[in-house]
Amino acid sequence: MLDAHKNVIRRLVHEVFEQGRVDVVDELLTEDFVDHSAQHAEFFSDVPGREGFKRMALIARSGLTDFEAELDLIVGEGDLVAALVLAAGTHTAEFMGVPPTDQRIRLSDFHFFRFRDGKVHEHWNQLNALEIMQQLGRVPQA
């Protein structure tokens, strides 16, 4: 079952985020999916559930053209899967409240997914917002 769970996460990254196929979300997340990620509500969408997850993916893709993402690390135990996702895109529209800079930026974020009946039921995420804001010129480089 753990391999099947990891494949769900691979599909989320590649189909939903890279390809923008948000229709797949309904297949991969439970109807009562809960996103515990405060940063998603703050920067992307405060709509709960699957619809909020779809909006978050579309907003991220709309702010960063030529968006690409990869799973750098994926591990699991029981009903939990953890993943480190590395992504990049060109900042051509508003992203995280910042007007376009036409810069290529990189993102790295950690995700934890809890599964129920083969679908993602809960999600926690920690986006490295400081790293992104530094790249967008909003925070001085250290």
Results as ranks from 00 to 15, higher is better:
L73A: 11
G63C: 02
K119M: 06
E122H: 15
R50N: 02
D102V: 05
L136Y: 04
Q134K: 13
Q135C: 01
V22F: 00
I74M: 12
L84W: 13
Q141P: 00
E18R: 13
L73Y: 10
F17P: 01
F44M: 08
T30P: 01
D66S: 10
T90F: 00
F110I: 15
V98M: 05
T101I: 07
L107T: 14
Q19D: 09
Q39Y: 14
R116I: 10
G97Y: 00
E51D: 15
A57F: 03
R61Y: 03
L127K: 05
D46K: 13
V25C: 08
A69E: 02
L130I: 14
V85N: 03
V98N: 03
T65M: 05
A41S: 09
E31Y: 08
V16Y: 09
F95R: 06
R10V: 09
K119W: 07
E131Q: 14
I74Y: 09
V25T: 09
L73T: 15
F17R: 07
V16A: 01
D66C: 00
G20T: 03
V8P: 08
F33V: 05
S62I: 04
A69R: 10
A57T: 08
R104C: 00
D32C: 02
V25W: 06
E15Y: 04
V34I: 15
H123D: 05
G20I: 09
A142Y: 14
A82I: 10
V8Q: 09
V24T: 07
A82F: 12
L73N: 14
A82K: 12
V47F: 07
R10C: 00
L12S: 03
R138C: 12
G89D: 02
H91W: 03
N125S: 14
R21D: 04
V25H: 04
D109F: 13
L71R: 04
R104S: 08
V139E: 01
R116T: 14
G137R: 07
G118V: 08
A88D: 14
V34S: 01
I105V: 14
H123E: 08
I105R: 01
N125P: 02
V85T: 15
F33P: 01
D3T: 12
V85Q: 11
V22K: 04
F110T: 15
E122A: 03
D32G: 04
L130E: 04
D3Q: 11
F67T: 06
R61S: 00
R116C: 13
H14E: 10
A69P: 01
R11E: 10
G78E: 02
T65R: 12
F43K: 02
L58F: 05
E68V: 11
D66G: 06
H36Q: 03
F33H: 12
E27H: 00
F110Y: 14
L84K: 15
